[in-house]
Structures are given as C-alpha cells and as structure tokens.
C-alpha cells in the first residue's frame, strides 16, 4: 500500500516555480526563483503551464465575475481559500476543486484558468498548495508587483529557462 501510496503522491505532485525579476538601469535583469510543491487536483488537467501571477478574491470565481475580459495573455490565478464559514456561496471552479478535496483548511490553490464556461474536467491545471509553501506563495503575492509562475508535473531541470 505504501508503494502505491507513494506512487499516487508522486503522480499528482505539482512542482511550482515562482520567479521574480529585478532589472538594472543597464537593461539586464536578475531572476530570483522560489521552488514550491503542491498537488494537482482532479478538477483540472495534469499538464505543465506557466504565466504571470494574478491573485483572485474567492468572490472573483463566481459566475458573474467581471474581470474575465480584462485578461489577454497567459496568467496563473492564485486564490486563498477561506474557512468554510467565510466561503462565498457562489462557487464554480472553486466548487469543483472543493468536491475533490473536502479537507481544505488553510489551503491555497493556484488555478491556471478562470474560464467561466463550465468544463468538466477543466482543460488546465488546478493545483493545491498547502502549509509553508502556501505561506511563501502568498507572501510573494502580498509584496510583489509582478511575478511569474511555472507549474510542472515533473521536477524542473536546472537548465530550463522561462519563456520570456
């Protein structure tokens, strides 16, 4: 059972890299990468993806969300899930994810897609990040103006660069 359990954990592990950029006056730039881990939820697809990080308020996941038409290129939505009593009652993507992981206390999830058309399952990854990794992620979101994230379902190879 342990072997198969290990296999199960490995299989849906998500490797998240969050990259910050610092550019100098001469035009070159430095990147700072933070490695995190999470779990792919069954509500989404287990594939790689990357994009600019954008935090979404849980109410932003409701059907009548307005911000959908503001976005024009790849992005990674970050939603801080709330305790049950704080949860907004209108749930679309969030509802799917919750059904796949009932014990969501203090869980942050990185969802790549906020297409309001109901898809089943979503064609893009939905990733749970918990505990310290989640706190690291939300602190980055809290402090930075711009950050990019890459999600992969296998450990990142050191040579890989970001699609700038």
């Amino acid at each position: 059972l342990a072997a198969s359990l290990g296999a199960v954990l490995a299989k849906d592990t998500a490797f998240v890299e969050v990259v910050l950029f610092e550019s100098s006056s001469t035009g070159d730039y430095t990147t700072y990468t933070t490695g995190l881990q999470g779990r792919f939820s069954k509500a989404g697809a287990t594939i790689s993806a990357e994009g600019e990080i954008v935090q979404m308020h849980p109410l932003g996941l409701c059907n009548n969300n307005d911000e959908e038409d503001l976005y024009e290129y790849g992005w990674v939505g970050v939603v801080k899930l709330e305790q049950p009593e704080l949860d907004p009652s209108c749930l679309t993507v969030l509802g799917k994810v919750k059904n796949n992981n009932p014990k969501h206390m203090n869980v942050f999830f990185v969802c790549l897609q906020l297409n309001q058309v109901a898809e089943d399952p979503l064609k893009r990854p939905v990733v749970y990040v918990k505990g310290n990794d989640a706190v690291k992620l939300m602190n980055i979101v809290n402090k930075q103006k711009v950050a990019r994230a890459r999600i992969q379902h296998r450990p990142p190879r050191p040579t890989e660069y970001f699609d700038m």
Binding site: I53, Q55, L59, G60, V146
Partner: peptide
C-alpha cells in the same frame, strides 16, 4: 483576501492592485 462579507446594505467591490485583489 481583505473583506469576504460586508455589513448589510453595503456593496463588496473587488479592488485590484497589480497582483493583489
């Protein structure tokens, strides 16, 4: 997330500041 539920009769507005909402 800032406010999740406002007092009665008020409107909740999802304010965006760069990455944050």
């Amino acid at each position: 997330n800032g406010c999740i539920k406002c007092n009665p009769k008020l409107f909740i507005f999802l304010e965006r500041n760069d990455i944050r909402q």
